[in-house]
């Protein structure tokens, strides 16, 4: 039995310890917002937070998150702590109409949240470098970059 927090809720799962966290989230816990893309940490579609840090859940054995706090896209809004339905990044994503097929977007959002968590006012290079490991096959990169800047601005209270 492996215990950890998911989106601030205690969970216990009965699964082999080497089961990738991705499948635990999707198939044990029904949190299907986190996606399976490449399975080898190349595309970033499976990105979640483990103790606040971005992690590729497809290469994260569930045993390694025992006792940790995991956040998925379904719990992203709550991390903003302002009681709103959308995290500033999600609001910005809608504002610029960033997603196309949308399959990579949960991972993009979680990666962007990790970026803003460390660098609240990122430069263009910070965004490009921090997001380079998240593939968008529709290549909606222009809008993703724009949305991150917009969210940073909103989070910083419009100050630049």
């Amino acid at each position: 039995m492996i215990s950890f927090l998911v989106n601030n809720v205690d969970v216990q799962v009965d699964a082999p310890g080497d089961t990738p966290l991705l499948w635990i989230l999707r198939d044990w816990l029904n949190l299907t917002g986190t996606k399976f893309g490449c399975g080898v940490a190349q595309c970033g579609a499976c990105t979640v937070h483990v103790d606040g840090q971005a992690r590729r859940s497809c290469v994260t054995p569930v045993a390694s998150v025992a006792g940790s706090a995991v956040t998925t896209v379904e719990g992203l809004a709550a991390t903003a702590g302002d009681g709103r339905e959308l995290h500033p990044l999600q609001a910005a994503w809608i504002e610029v109409q960033a997603p196309q097929c949308g399959y990579c977007q949960s991972g993009q959002l979680m990666q962007a949240a990790a970026l803003l968590g460390e660098t609240p006012d990122p430069s263009d290079d910070d965004i490009r470098n921090g997001m380079a490991a998240n593939l968008c096959r529709c290549m909606a990169y222009v809008r993703i970059q724009k949305a991150i800047k917009l969210a940073a601005l909103a989070q910083n209270g419009g100050r630049k």
Binding site: C43, T47, E118, N129, G130
Partner: peptide
């Protein structure tokens, strides 16, 4: 995927650390 050193910690760029993928 594309990766750079990041800051002095040599642990990847902002938000994307080596252990995002390397356990």
């Amino acid at each position: 995927p594309p990766m750079i050193r990041g800051g002095e910690a040599s642990f990847g760029p902002s938000g994307l650390h080596c252990n995002s993928c390397h356990g």
